[in-house]
């Protein structure tokens, strides 16, 4: 089928819209990615006087990749740990952040303040503020224990001991508190994205549901859930990536240390590529899984695919 003039014009307009961003990506992102591929296939060294120098690897260009599995006991082990961690963490974070977002989307007194509080972790869980809090405050006040959590339970545990509570109780409370804190602190972005999604649902839908006499449970599954579904997908992608690429992740830490402490850039890049490949496979699997959950999405997607086939 020959495409009409109007269609061609539309296609060109579409391309023009992506172009500025695409140029940015090509210039400042893709180049670095290609460099990372190149690093992984050779041995990058810092030589005094001549800066970064690429050296050929002795045993073929894939030596770094093979080493990660055969010569390194730590890497596969950390990889497995990270994967099994993900399996229980991601569903919990998603369900939790959806529940919190739904509550925060309802009208109640002090909603603005509550939203701000749930937004705060985003603000200080990374960057300068986090490093200040971690290095200066927690380490001096809490006895130099620089754990992954911004706020470890040591402080609270000490306070409870002061109140004279029995040891068992204090320990149970302590571990509960640090787990919950961990969860809440990692859900900030997801909560904001869900709130954004929930705000796009017209109030009239809920009014209709109420008039029709649907229960809160039904309203959730037939009104809220379908509308919020695209954002479950967004959040799934974000959570999976955040889990794997955050600095608290064992594999990531190991790769970063290899690169910036041992200065083995090439080996680190090779590990990074293996790791990213696994993440991408996980993402694809997770996306497949979630499209199974939602019949609504599946149908919509199918329709759109057919439409695309017709036009293109």
């Amino acid at each position: 089928m020959k495409r009409s003039k109007a269609q061609r014009k539309k296609s060109r307009a579409g391309f023009l819209f992506v172009l500025p961003w695409l140029i940015g990506i090509i210039l400042f992102f893709l180049q670095t990615v290609f460099k990372l591929i190149r690093y992984s296939l050779c041995d990058l060294k810092i030589v005094q006087g001549s800066g970064f120098v690429y050296e050929k690897l002795g045993k073929g260009i894939f030596t770094n990749f093979l080493d990660a599995f055969t010569g390194d006991a730590l890497f596969p082990q950390k990889l497995m740990e990270s994967l099994s961690d993900m399996l229980y963490r991601i569903p919990i974070i998603l369900v939790f952040s959806l529940i919190v977002a739904i509550i925060l989307n309802q009208k109640f007194r002090g909603r603005g303040m509550m939203r701000t509080i749930f937004f705060v972790p985003l603000l200080i869980s990374s960057g300068v503020i986090a490093s200040i809090i971690k290095t200066s405050l927690t380490s001096t006040v809490m006895g130099g224990d620089s754990s992954n959590n911004i706020f470890n339970a040591t402080l609270l545990i000490n306070m409870l001991y002061e109140f004279g509570l029995p040891d068992n109780l204090v320990n149970t409370i302590g571990s509960m508190v640090s787990n919950v804190t961990d969860l809440v602190w990692q859900s900030s972005v997801q909560i904001i994205v869900f709130i954004m999604g929930l705000m796009t649902i017209p109030a009239t839908y809920y009014e209709v549901a109420q008039v029709e006499g649907s229960t809160a449970w039904e309203t959730f599954w037939y009104v809220t859930f379908p509308a919020v579904f695209p954002y479950i997908f967004v959040n799934l992608v974000y959570t999976v990536i955040d889990h794997f690429v955050s600095y608290d992740n064992g594999v990531m830490k190991y790769i970063m240390d290899t690169a910036y402490k041992d200065f083995k850039y090439s080996y680190a890049s090779a590990m990074m590529w293996i790791y990213f490949f696994i993440i991408i496979v996980t993402l694809a699997a997770a996306a497949g899984l979630i499209s199974l959950i939602s019949p609504v999405r599946e149908k919509k997607k199918g329709d759109r695919k057919n439409g695309r086939r017709k036009n293109g």
Partner: peptide, 27 residues
């Protein structure tokens, strides 16, 4: 919109989220 390479770019967008600034800081 529809244009050539659209599907590829859409997938690349997701994959690009993986590369945090720290990962690409040397290159």
């Amino acid at each position: 919109h529809k244009f050539p390479l659209k599907g590829f770019i859409t997938q690349a967008v997701v994959i690009a989220i993986l590369f945090r600034p720290e990962v690409t800081s040397v290159p």
